Simulated scan of single mutants.
Amino acid sequence: MKIYFTFEPRPDLKEPLIEEFPNIEFVFHSKLDEGQLKDIDVLVTYGEDLNERRIELASNLKWIFVASAGIEKMPHKAIHECGILVSNVRGIHKKPMAESILAHILSLKRALPFIYENQQKGEWNKKAQLSELNGSTALIIGPGAIGSEIGRLLQAFEVYTIGCNRSGEETPFIDETYKIDELMSVLPKAEIVISMLPSTPETRHLLTYDHFKQMREDTIFLNFGRGDVVATDVLVKVLEDKLIRHAVLDVFEIEPLPKDNKLWQLDNVTISPHFSSHSSRYVERSLDIFKPSLRKWLAGDDNLENKMEILRGY
């Protein structure tokens, strides 16, 4: 049996994996080599290196383990037609992403950009608008594993947390939950709005200009889910019209964000290059999901953690 990694883990992670599964042939490359695809049984990938042709070349492929939460760039139909099982690492991003989101919120509440700017200019300037996170209300759109972790950290600051999901069912560390259909009426309740939505046909351009008009003028909007939940031109108009206080964006419709995009020119937006989930422990946490799943799969059990419905996109 052959398992092909299209990235190479650190030696301290790779060597224990090989020792734990001595009867498996592991191949590790820093990028996908099409010559390896013909006889592999399992592919471990970040997902962005797959297309219909490569799925066709991998005629023996039975399972794709995606070391990422998003699978929107993968050839869904081709994978489904070949009956290939897909699972991912949903949930491992929650610690670094929640910390990133909290850092951005605190930075804006406590005027850290103002402090850094004046330090660079050598100015002693106390004329900043400071506010507290304590006592705020935060709305998390799509409160899954990451959203729950964000809720846990926010509640430590005595923030009231609201969630919006498809079902309206309760989520850990969320004080009250509504259905996504009720989003328009919920938006005015919060001065922090966080989108953690995945990219699906249902979520594409879900947030419109009218949604932002429902938000409070002092709202901090953060998008750390997927960039196509709101059209770029809508975001630009929202920020130019100053409907909200500030936007923090880690994801975009087009990545990298083009240099000529108007978002770069605005002073009420923070642009992060889609790396809020990055951490020195990323691959370590990915393998913590992969290894138990591999043991189950070798025993004939395909009910793996984070098994995905590829055509639904999650």
Rank of each mutant, 00 (worst) to 15 (best):
S277H: 13
S276F: 06
L287Q: 13
S286I: 11
R281G: 01
S280T: 09
S277Q: 01
W264E: 07
H278Q: 14
R281E: 13
S286W: 02
L287G: 09
L287W: 00
S286T: 15
P273I: 07
L263F: 13
W264Q: 08
L287I: 04
S277V: 08
S286K: 02
S276K: 00
N261H: 11
I271G: 05
E284A: 10
K262S: 14
E284T: 08
T270D: 03
Q265A: 15
S286H: 01
H278W: 11
H278G: 07
F275A: 08
L263A: 09
Q265I: 02
V283Q: 02
T270V: 10
P258H: 08
S276T: 14
P273S: 12
T270Y: 07
R281I: 00
I271Y: 05
F275L: 10
S279C: 12
S272D: 06
S277W: 14
S279G: 04
I271S: 06
I271Q: 13
W264C: 10
P273W: 12
V283K: 02
E284Q: 07
H274N: 08
K259Y: 02
W264Y: 15
V283E: 14
H274C: 02
P258C: 13
T270L: 05
N268A: 03
K259W: 00
S276Q: 01
S279W: 06
S280A: 15
T270I: 03
V283R: 11
R281N: 10
H278T: 13
S276G: 15
S276P: 01
V269I: 12
P273E: 06
F275C: 09
S277C: 03
S277K: 05
L266R: 14
D260M: 00
S276C: 09
R281A: 13
N268M: 02
W264D: 10
N261F: 02
S286Y: 00
L287P: 12
D260V: 07
S277G: 11
L263Y: 04
S286Q: 06
N268H: 15
L263I: 02
F275N: 15
D267W: 03
R285T: 09
L266F: 03
S286E: 01
S276Y: 02
N261I: 08
P258K: 06
N261G: 03
W264I: 03
Y282W: 11
S276V: 13
L263D: 10
P273M: 06
W264M: 00
I271T: 00
W264L: 07
P273F: 03
F275D: 10
L263G: 07
Y282R: 10
S279P: 07
S286C: 15
S272I: 14
E284N: 10
L263Q: 07
S279M: 12
L287R: 00
E284V: 04
R285E: 14
S286M: 06
K259L: 08
D267F: 07
H274I: 08
K262F: 08
H274M: 13
E284D: 15
S279K: 06
P258E: 08
T270H: 02
R281F: 09
D260L: 05
N268Q: 05
R285F: 04
R285G: 05
Q265L: 04
S272N: 15
E284F: 01
R285H: 13
N268T: 05
D260H: 12
T270E: 14
Q265V: 00
K262N: 14
Y282A: 05
L287T: 07
